[in-house]
Amino acid sequence: MAAGAVLDLAVRTAKGELRNGFAVVRPPGHHAEPNQAMGFCFFNSVAVAARLLHTRLRLQRVLIVDWDVHHGNGTQQIFYEDPHVLYISIHRHDDGNFFPGTGAASECGAGAGLGFNEYDPELVLVSCGFDAAAGHPAPLGGYTVVLSLEGGYDLPAMCDCAQECVRALLGDRTAPPAHHELAPLEAGPAVAAARLGRLQTERDAADTAAALATLSMHHQHPAHAHPAHPTPLVRPASPDSSRSVSEEPMEQDEGK
C-alpha cells in the first residue's frame, strides 16, 4: 500500500492532474534493495515510482532528493548505472561508521549513470526522512541546527521563509499555510471547486486549513507527545528532555 500510494501520487503529478503532494506512508523504503529488505524498509517506494515514471510515462529525467539522515543505499544501488534518474542524498556518513555505511563522496554512479552537471528534471521525488530532526537519540540521527541565509531574491518570500524558520528554531507556533497553498490541484477552478465542494463556507475552509496545520505545530514535551500531535521538528535543547535510546538500525540488518 505504501509503494502503491507513492506510485499513484507520482503518476498523477507527472500527468499534471496534481501540482504536488505528500505521501504520508509507512514503512519507509530507501534502504530496500531489489532482492532484500533492510533498515525497516521492505519495498523501495520512491525507486519503484521513479522506475515506472520512466518505463510507463517515458520521463527521461527524474530527480530523487533524499534528505533522510541515513544514506539511501537501496535507491543509489538501483539507479547507479541509470542516466534517467539522478539521486542526491544528504546524509550523515561518519567515515562509513553510520548506518548503513554507504554513501561516500566517491560514489557517483557508474557507466551511463556516472554523474551529471545540468539535469533539468521533469519530476522531483523526495525521500522525506525526518530523523535528522532534534529529539532523535544519537544512534538514530538527530542534529542541532544553525541556519545561515544564502540565496533568495524575492524579498517578501525571503522574509516569510526566514520568519517561519526562526519561529521553528525558537520552538514557537509557526503560521498556518495559506489556504491556496493547501489546494493540491492546479487543473483549473472547476476541478478545484469540485474537490473543495465539501467546504460549505469560507469559515469551514479556514478551520480545515488550521486543523491541518496544527498537526505539525503542536508543541508538547516528548514524554507526553501524542502521535496525532507531533512535537516541532526543531526545538531548543532541553536538559530535562529524555528519550529511551532505541536500537541502532544497523542491528536490524546483521547480514549486511
Rank of each mutant, 00 (worst) to 15 (best):
F22N: 06
P34C: 00
P230S: 13
A105P: 09
R198H: 11
P232G: 03
H224C: 11
L196M: 10
P156D: 05
Q220G: 13
A37R: 05
V62F: 02
P137S: 10
A206W: 02
H229Y: 15
H93C: 08
V145H: 09
A225K: 07
A237E: 09
A2I: 07
V25M: 10
A110T: 06
H180E: 15
A157C: 11
S242Y: 14
A162P: 03
R19W: 07
P121S: 01
V166W: 03
G21T: 06
S127N: 08
V124R: 03
G109R: 05
T55I: 07
Q60G: 13
G103W: 03
A162K: 02
C41M: 02
T144K: 12
N20A: 12
H221P: 08
Q163Y: 11
P222H: 12
H229P: 08
L9W: 03
P100N: 08
G103A: 10
E81Q: 08
G142T: 06
A23L: 04
A138L: 14
L7A: 03
D120T: 14
L149A: 14
S89D: 02
L7K: 05
S238P: 05
L53V: 03
F130W: 04
G152S: 01
A205F: 09
S242L: 14
A194T: 12
C41I: 02
L52Q: 10
D207S: 12
L63A: 09
H84N: 09
P236Y: 00
G16T: 12
G171P: 09
V234Y: 12
S241T: 14
A32G: 00
L57R: 00
A211D: 15
L63P: 01
G113D: 00
A133V: 12
Y119K: 04
V62G: 01
G129S: 04
H179S: 15
V46P: 00
N20G: 15
F79M: 06
R173C: 12
D154K: 03
E247C: 14
C108Y: 09
A175W: 07
G103H: 07
D68Y: 05
L212Q: 11
A192E: 15
R12Y: 08
E181P: 05
I90Q: 00
L7H: 00
E150R: 10
H224P: 01
H30N: 05
N35Y: 06
T13H: 07
G74Y: 07
F40G: 00
S216L: 15
P236K: 03
R58H: 10
L182P: 04
C165D: 01
E248S: 15
P227W: 13
F43A: 01
A190D: 14
L9I: 10
A178E: 13
S241I: 14
V85A: 10
L140R: 10
D8V: 09
Q77L: 02
R26T: 06
D68L: 10
T102M: 01
A193W: 03
V126N: 06
A5S: 09
C108V: 11
R235C: 09
T55D: 04
D131S: 01
H180Q: 10
R58M: 08
G142P: 04
